[in-house]
């Protein structure tokens, strides 16, 4: 998507990226509801899902104001098509087993942690306030997921095997988290968004630490990496997720709920 026309458009797209990531990951975690490995984990996963939906509402609500075309947070969530969603590819990956869900959570929570930490100093006050508030939540998500990866990696042979597999399967989506295009660069210049290369450095350090402690090998640096979320090019999974999420507002156009 071209964004050179208006500075507001960069901000709008940036907010969609952050908001869609929280929204889509929240959806995935909600799929676990009632099916978790222990009751405490059902509570924890719905809790994280709930935090993420709260983040999505703030971000899409702000995006709606920035756009100023009268599209509400719900219009943005429910009436955009797959190619107009900008969540990171990792967020839409299916839950898989519990190891897969926790590794995905670790990767994204760690990304959000360092991103939001930097965004607290954003020149955009609304974003800065959002980041400060959400950082507290993400700190808990990060602690929760890293503790699980630790237990699964350093638990039984079976759990270790599943965790290694999850890391290997999801690793290819981790570069997409940090890709920068003109939107990121323009907002970086404006002091609104951080340099993702710096966020990436911190992320790598954190993840390497957690994986080492979990006895899980870090995938090789020349591993093949997927990308595309900045342009709304997704994996095949997102379409199904949106079909499910959007069914009611699309079936009953204009209805209030």
């Amino acid at each position: 998507m071209s964004s050179k026309n208006k500075p507001g458009n960069d901000l709008f797209l940036y907010l969609l990226r952050l908001g869609d990531t929280s929204l889509v990951l929240s959806h995935r975690l909600a799929e676990w509801c009632g099916h978790g490995p222990i009751l405490e984990e059902d509570i924890a996963m719905t809790n994280i899902s709930l935090d993420l939906i709260g983040q999505a509402r703030i971000l899409l609500g702000y995006a709606s104001r920035v756009e100023g075309k009268g599209r509400s947070e719900d219009d943005l969530a429910y009436l955009r098509e797959e190619r107009a969603f900008y969540n990171v590819l990792l967020a839409e990956q299916p839950n898989g087993d519990f190891a897969c869900t926790m590794v995905r959570q670790l990767f994204i929570s760690s990304y959000q942690f360092f991103l939001f930490e930097a965004l607290q100093k954003s020149a955009d006050e609304t974003i800065a306030a959002f980041a400060a508030k959400s950082l507290k939540e993400v700190t808990y998500h990060l602690r929760h997921s890293s503790e699980w990866v630790l237990r699964l990696g350093d638990g039984t042979a079976e759990s270790r095997e599943k965790t290694v597999q999850a890391v290997n399967e999801l690793w290819m989506y981790t570069r997409d988290l940090f890709d920068m295009d003109s939107v990121d660069r323009n907002l970086l210049t404006a002091g609104i968004a951080p340099d993702m290369n710096l966020v990436k450095e911190k992320w790598e350090q954190k993840i390497t630490g957690v994986l080492k402690e979990s006895t899980i090998p870090v995938p090789p640096s020349d591993a093949w990496m997927a990308s595309g979320s900045r342009e709304g090019k997704h994996t095949e999974h997102l379409g199904y997720l949106l079909a499910e999420m959007q069914i009611l507002p699309r079936t009953y156009p204009g209805a209030s709920w």
């Binding site: 978790g36 490995p37 984990e41 087993d97 519990f98 237990r151 638990g155 079976e158 759990s159």
Partner: peptide, 17 residues
């Protein structure tokens, strides 16, 4: 299914502890 699928998770937590 939740209980059976979760068994390896609970065992891992026990082993880690």
């Amino acid at each position: 299914k939740a209980d059976e699928d979760g068994l390896w998770v609970r065992l891992a937590a026990e082993a880690y502890a």
